[in-house]
């Protein structure tokens, strides 16, 4: 199996829910481990930035471990990839307006905005269709399938060309995933999206 050969490291940001993504990736067959402070991220093919928690706390945790700098270096190596999930996606951008303005990793140009309460219920919790716009093996057979979302903020990339999918939440069409070179980031939780999510995670090695 191809999965066995791929080493995935999940960055511990001291803000939980690594357990689910860790379990799911391991079950699929990927060689999965948790990246704590001392482990070098160079050893991994794919690094996952997971996400539940607050933007500021997650950024502080990454900076404390010098992970912001390490990630920049990591992306320079050949055949390596980075996947952001939910908050992990938002952290890749330049800034977020969560509890005041916060700066992010800045790997992707753009910012993170809050849903307007007037238009819809916030947070957005539930299963919604993900409409992919580009042709890509990562989502083969998964177009318009339902994935699980739980968030109050959404990403607005400056370069619209990197938008991999959009999702309609009560009339608001937001960017639900991006693909930019060797970076993939998703607002939904593939590890919580049942069989559909497992299929998605089985495909992510295509970004390498």
């Amino acid at each position: 199996m191809i999965f066995k050969k791929i080493k995935i490291g999940i960055i511990n940001m001291d803000c939980n829910n690594m357990y689910s993504i860790f379990n799911t990736l391991k079950k699929i067959g990927y060689k999965t481990s948790i990246i704590n402070k001392n482990k070098s991220i160079k050893n991994f093919d794919l690094v996952v930035l997971p996400g539940v928690g607050s933007y500021k706390q997650a950024m502080n945790s990454l900076k404390k471990k010098n992970m912001d700098y390490e990630l920049l270096n990591f992306l320079e190596y050949k055949n390596r990839g980075l996947m952001g999930i939910c908050l992990g996606m938002q952290l890749l951008f330049q800034s977020s307006e969560e509890f005041g303005k916060n700066s992010g990793l800045g790997l992707i140009e753009g910012n993170v905005k809050k849903f307007k309460k007037k238009l819809s219920k916030v947070p957005h919790i539930g299963w919604n269709k993900v409409e992919f716009r580009k042709k890509n093996p990562i989502y083969s057979n998964l177009n318009k399938k339902n994935f699980y979302f739980v968030h109050s903020f959404y990403c607005r990339p400056k370069n619209e060309k990197i938008i991999l999918s959009k999702t309609n939440y009560n009339g608001i069409k937001f960017c639900s995933s991006i693909l930019s070179k060797n970076i993939i980031a998703v607002q939904f939780h593939p590890e919580k999206s049942g069989k559909v999510g497992v299929k998605f995670l089985q495909n992510i090695h295509h970004i390498l």
Partner: peptide, 8 residues
């Protein structure tokens, strides 16, 4: 809410 995010 501040520590874990309102959606949690």
């Amino acid at each position: 809410v501040k520590k874990f995010g309102s959606s949690t």
